[in-house]
Amino acid sequence: MPDPRIKNEAQYEALVKKGYSKEKSARIANTPDAGEKGGKAKPYEEWTKEELYEQAKKVGISGRSYMNKKSLIKSLRTN
């Protein structure tokens, strides 16, 4: 039975199988536009530092307030 708190159940399950914790998987799967494809989002290099910070906040990256733009991009791509 799907969990009604998870917005993107397929993505959540895939992340758990990949080894992510349930909490982190849920955060990512519940992020607005999570897992949507189609090339509509601009590359992180074109985002402002503030936009990157807000995205890092949404997905739960710790230490984000100390990161510069390059570090935020790296963290968003690897987490």
Rank of each mutant, 00 (worst) to 15 (best):
A41I: 01
G38V: 02
R64G: 02
Y12L: 13
K74Y: 10
I73Y: 06
K37V: 01
S71N: 14
Q55K: 14
Y12I: 14
K40G: 11
K42D: 00
I61S: 09
E50K: 14
R64F: 04
A26W: 09
A34K: 07
D3A: 10
A14C: 07
K69L: 10
A34H: 06
G39R: 03
R77C: 13
T31P: 00
I28N: 06
R5F: 04
V59Q: 10
N79A: 12
K57V: 04
M1D: 07
L72N: 01
K7F: 07
K74A: 12
K37S: 02
T31N: 11
Y53P: 02
G19M: 11
E46V: 00
G39V: 00
M1L: 11
S75K: 15
L15Q: 13
Y44C: 03
M67W: 07
M67P: 06
A14F: 06
K58Q: 15
G39F: 00
I61N: 05
Y53G: 04
P4V: 09
K24E: 10
A56Q: 01
A29Q: 01
Y44V: 01
N8I: 10
K69H: 06
K74H: 10
G35Q: 05
A14M: 14
M1F: 05
W47D: 01
R27S: 05
N79I: 13
L15T: 05
G38T: 04
V59T: 13
Y12T: 14
S25K: 05
K37E: 00
A10M: 12
E36R: 09
K58W: 09
Y66W: 08
T78K: 13
L52W: 11
K70W: 04
K49N: 10
E36M: 08
G19W: 15
K40I: 06
A41L: 10
L76N: 05
L15R: 14
V16W: 11
E23K: 15
Y20L: 12
N79R: 10
I61R: 06
K18G: 05
Y12W: 15
A26I: 08
R64Q: 09
K18T: 09
Q55V: 04
T78I: 12
Y20V: 00
N8W: 12
A34N: 09
Y53Q: 10
K37T: 02
P32V: 07
E13V: 11
Q55I: 10
E13P: 03
A10N: 09
K18Q: 11
K57M: 04
P32K: 15
N8P: 12
G35T: 01
K7Q: 15
N8Q: 12
